[in-house]
Amino acid sequence: MVQSKQEKIANKVITVALILLALFCVVPILYILSASLSDEIALTREGYSLIPRGFSLEAYKYILESPKSIISAYGVTILVTLAGTAVSLIVTTMLAYVIARKDFRLGRVFAFMIFFSMLFNGGLVPTYIMVTKYFHLKDSLWALMLPYIILPWHVFLMKGFLSDIPTSLIEAAKIDGAGEIKSFFRIIVPISKPALATVGLFIAFTYWNDWYQSMLYIDSSNINSLQFYLYRIMNNIQYLSTSMQAGNITIDIANLPSETARMALCILAAGPMLIIFPFFQKYFVKGLTVGAVKG
């Protein structure tokens, strides 16, 4: 394609605007990074800056001093994220494909059912009862993995993508004599790579960022997820510094992790996902669907 002069200028404008937006998103994390590398006293005295105040690795040393918990937390999170994403992506895609098919009799009924469950839920207590008393999942990795296998939001997102598949393609598969299940795995899945990559990424993020299931269902310290590890420390400090405690009890706040250590934890928790991100991006390729039809 030949670019006109006008288009070149337009491209420049877009690039500059996006650079500004990217900075807007990235600068705050640079503050966090810099804070995690700062000296604690200097940070409190002078406030945050983009260049660490009195460079110090004390915060990271503090966290890695007892690496046992953080290593096992990484292990749990990585395992749950990998396994959970794989299963969830398959199950979500199958369900989404079914409701995306306009010729399916129960499509709208199912769509409504999924939507209904997105808004109405029995609340936490009944879910807790089901998970602990009937599914017997308390204190196991399953309790972290299973709740997010089907999230209505992901199903609808996937449905949105799959609705783009031309009907002609499905018809063609039918003429070939392939059954629905076969044509789903042989044709639909391969041509939906960008959709799978996107939703897969979102599912992975859901697992990675989750702390709530750990809080509710995990009692043993060795199956806590990374985010819960971080969240626990952050929120505990926040709670202790705002809730009214009974006056005669003094909880020793001075011993809790310092602000610099908390920032370091945040960096350690977010880092790996940002490295993984570009791997998914190779699946974002233009016009895959069409190529498949033509081929």
């Binding site: 966090i32 985010q227 570009p278």
Partner: peptide, 13 residues
């Protein structure tokens, strides 16, 4: 990647 950075920052942080 840059636009996604904030998604990993919890609100406490």
């Amino acid at each position: 990647t840059s636009l996604f950075v904030p998604y990993f920052i919890s609100w406490v942080v």
